[in-house]
Computed example of a mutant assay.
Amino acid sequence: MAELKQKDRDALPESNFAFEKQRKEPLENATHVRNAIARFNQVEGVTDDERDAAWKRIQGAAKKHGVEVHEKSWREIGKTHAAAKKG
């Protein structure tokens, strides 16, 4: 996994995080983008508006880093896999 050292993470601008104010879920590379999607619903203390903004940043980073995103909205995260397992 592409882990950021604390010094490098602290040096990143807020715009390089899915959740800018909280500086959560960096979007520096494809691995980070996939992790941001996987952990999206675990981020606490954010509003739906902040989630909407974070999702847009994730989508932009996914396109930049060549990560395929199946969900159209953050509200779909986890639902497509659960539906596939039931079928």
Rank of each mutant, 00 (worst) to 15 (best):
H32K: 09
A30M: 01
D49Y: 12
G66R: 15
A30T: 05
A2L: 06
K56W: 01
H65P: 08
A54W: 02
V33H: 06
V46S: 00
H65Y: 15
V43N: 00
G60H: 09
V43T: 01
H65I: 07
K79F: 15
E50N: 08
A11I: 07
K79G: 05
I37H: 02
K79W: 15
A30D: 12
T80D: 12
R75K: 13
T31M: 05
N35G: 07
K5Q: 12
K64E: 13
S15W: 13
M1R: 12
E44Y: 00
K79H: 14
A36N: 07
R23Y: 06
K5I: 10
F17N: 08
K21E: 10
T80M: 15
R57V: 03
E20V: 12
T80F: 14
R75A: 02
R39Q: 03
P26E: 12
K56V: 04
A18S: 03
K56S: 05
K24H: 03
I77S: 04
V43P: 00
R9C: 04
H32P: 02
V69I: 15
S15G: 08
D52A: 11
V69G: 02
K5L: 14
H65M: 04
N35D: 11
E25I: 00
K5W: 10
K21R: 14
A36D: 08
K86F: 10
G45A: 03
N41V: 00
N41K: 07
V69K: 08
A83G: 11
T47V: 06
E20Y: 05
D10M: 05
N41R: 13
W74I: 02
E28Y: 14
S73R: 14
K21W: 03
E28N: 13
F17L: 07
N35P: 01
V33P: 02
W55N: 01
K86A: 14
W55D: 03
I58A: 08
T47R: 08
T31C: 04
R57C: 06
